[in-house]
Design a binder for these strands. Sequence first.
DNA 1: CTAGAGCGCTCG
DNA 2: GTACGAGCGCTCTAGC
Length: 935
Amino acid sequence: MTTKFGKGCHLHLIDGSAFIFRAYHALPPLTRKSDGLPIGAVSGFCNMLQRYVEGNHAADTPTHLAVIFDKGSHTFRNDMYDLYKANREAMPEDLRPQIPLTREATRAFNIACEEMEGYEADDIIATLSCQARDLGGRVTIVSSDKDLMQLVGDGVEMYDAMKNKVIDRDGVFEKFGVGPEGVVDVQALAGDSVDNVPGAPGIGIKTAALLINEFGTLEALLDRAEEIKQPKRRQTLIEKREQIELSKKLVQLDCNTPLEFTLDDLEIKDPDPEVLLGFLAKMEFRTLTKRIADALDAELPAIEDAAPVAKAGEAPAEVEDLPIDPEAYTCVSDLETLNTWIAEARHQGYVAVDTETTGLDNMTADLVGISLATKAGKACYIPLTHSKGGDDLFGGSELVAGQIPLQDALDALKPLLEDEAVRKIFQNAKYDCKIFQRYGIIVQGIDDTMLMSYALYSGLHGHGMDALSERYLGHNPIPIKDLIGSGKSMITFDKVDVEKATRYAAEDADITLRLWQKFAPQLHHAKVTRVYERLERPLVPVLAQMERHGVLVDRDTLSRMSNAFAQKMAGLEADIHEMAGESFNVGSPKQLGEILFDKMGFEGGKKGKTGAYATGADILEDLATEHELPARVLDWRQLSKLKSTYTDALQDHINKETGRVHTSYMQTGAATGRLSSTDPNLQNIPIRSEEGRRIREAFIAPEGKVLVSLDYSQIELRILAHVAGIDSLKQAFREGQDIHAATASEMFGVPLDQMTSDVRRQAKAINFGVIYGISGFGLARNLRIPRAEAQGFIDRYFERFPGIKDYMDATVKFAQENLFVETLFGRKIHTPEIAAKGPRAGFAKRAAINAPIQGTAADIIRRAMIRMPEAIAGQPAKMLLQVHDELLFEVEEDAVDQLIATAREVMESAASPAIHLDVPLIADAGQGCSWAEAH
DNA sequence: CTAGAGCGCTCG
DNA sequence: GTACGAGCGCTCTAGC
């Protein structure tokens, strides 16, 4: 038999018993929730193992690793001396059942787990150490047991995991006063009361070391005992010679244990996530399971909440459905009371928090008050800056009495809000976190009921608090309208009566807490914990930061464009009126329809519920071949759109203080996992038309910086090629081919070098059509070809790529059976409409086909965004915007290349390690002074 | 006067 | 009756 183990290998041997006892004594007597089984030592043992394999230690990284256990209580030493270890205390009752579990734990980690009947763990360790050393390898013994110190020497060291210290020759010398080769002799003389090794009475370690150093070896000492000057010591050595020689045999470790395995069997192997997480979940180790699932990037297994008692920071398993009573809330008006609430939150490990402000724009809104909830029904409101009715016209407003000074309250709350160990529960955490950040508080340790609802129920309903409260708590919250009114007479929250505000604000915190108690256990059952914890929650601070940065927009550029558009529009309008023979509102589809179809007599039909003529671009384009008027209307509409939505409205969104535009990203807006952007929407800035594209010239970088854009190339088609398993498409992507041309070539048999732009255009339309859940009708309309011809294309496409058809059919079937579909990362998108009859079923089918593709792409860019801040930390660069498959950065001029390299790497590797794609992800980069140049 | 539906257009 | 996913400005109407 040949052995691979040799030079360059590094064997680590963990003393299992030492780990177990250390774990047992270090932790309180924990029990498994579901049945009360003691598991404290197992828990500690697993934690120590995990920390060790993570490499979180001072010793070198192992290539081979084993945990060595004792087996049975009778060993060959008992045959020599029946009192050996007779003084050992009996094992504690609650530790005994945990011993086999530590073996199971070791195997679950996929670490070699070794023991031998009749031998101590120390003998196995000794044997392995000798073997490894003889083969030229190195050994680290993970233990601080002094009995093992005799093994230290060339290539063999010990490692004290507790003190994170390596013990080498010097370390041994410190302990015994002799080198490792003298340890056995010293121990034989000094004896060991714990193991009941007799040794020489009256001689301790210090004396023993002195003697061994003087005589060299124990044998020499015993032979020349007569020479000892001290009479008592001389007598002992002579009289107790036999006992000392026995002691030496007892402490001498056996390097020739007949092992039934080889060093090669100890090679490090990765754990099987399913086995390991399964074991940890069985033990009900919540924190550790989560940590290891994170480390392995694996799905978190469900752990039943068996007992009603909650651990700190975890939701109670059983929620009391107390009625919601706004009169029961308290108003906190002094610091002492506030401190009792803070103490309760700390004691519990979680607290629901809500802020009240003067407006919805969190860049400018000021804090008015804060509400907290610690238990269902137990909530308070802390008014801070409520003021009397008078406004600034009368020389400023006066604060209402009975409020804690703002700064005092914030100083008291800051440590709580910034303590990661106390869970702060929000409904829409991004808003409140941004408010707090403006007051110098960086909230850590958040949960967000809105995001929980989104992870659980995306596609089923909205995730606003009112909807969630009604649906899951059967309670309609007090409408904000009742407090601040609406429309022109709307007031700001600081003018609201404090008692009314208390009922409203504390209720919001109470509801948030109750929703959290409902949702938290559901995440596990729905298997979306990982989606929530890895794709939703960590995105909150990233988006908050992007929104705070904002993007610089040049008002003058927009203003000049606006004027130019206005002039052109006026000219067009005059032309249109003249052609129509009367003056009318060109912006009114209703009036336009009447002019076109009633007065001018064009062919066309009524449409929709209102009975108005349809005058969409497609219809006007058809009419434009016959008459100038519809063509002019199309031009007018384009300019009108650009002016009203972009050059005009955008100016109103430029922040007075920053000169920048701060959009707001909605994380729960799109059912597929995409973000949406509002106030203003920066995800639909024109680019397709030359004229519209110029709007992007107004998005600029400040002096000395440039804008950098990176966008994923064809990410959805790549995902389709992967999920449907289309070899030819995957191959085309791997070779970096033009995918639409490749599709056309495959479909129509045209060689790539003879491809015409028209054939390619048709293939491109089909490719996109497939992603959208293709239909002959839709493709016909898009390509403006007869429906039968379009259907022919589709048929041929499915013939060439049968895997696509299979994927579509399988996805629809899955949706019909489960009423949801999933992305590759486990995001669930519910599709209840799939069960509907009639045309609605068609919509639902196409949506079901599209959702996993669009959603997987959305998940990938989310992962990139979550990793990005850390990846570019230290670079003079900021991530500003996300447009579904594009990220826009603002970077100092001389750092552009570095930023592109880093961001590209993050984006292109964003799918791994959670999933492996059969196609590469490619991000294209551009840069320039404006967004027009960068994209 | 205000809220909301409908239309049409912008983006990926 | 139809491509998938979004947001917003404008017009028009219903209803206070």
